[in-house]
Amino acid sequence: MISCEKAAIICNKIQYKEATFIEKLKLRYHLLMCETCTKFSKKNSQLTSLCNKAHLHGLSNKEKEQMKDRLRSKS
């Protein structure tokens, strides 16, 4: 039996498809008996689908640094 903290971390890893098979099994087993984590897991996947739906765009760190440089040179 794993702790809820560990379960949460595995749950987060699953959102990024980085959990191993054994971790997934452990989480499944944990979710069978822990209601809080089941709720969390459900909300967590909802958050992932929201993020996917929003088509978020981001500037890379490099692009941000370039912007900062340009701002600095002007000020």
Partner: peptide, 12 residues
């Protein structure tokens, strides 16, 4: 602080 705080929001 502008770039760190708002660049992504403005970009979206």
């Amino acid at each position: 602080t502008w770039v760190d705080a708002y660049a992504d929001y403005l970009f979206n």
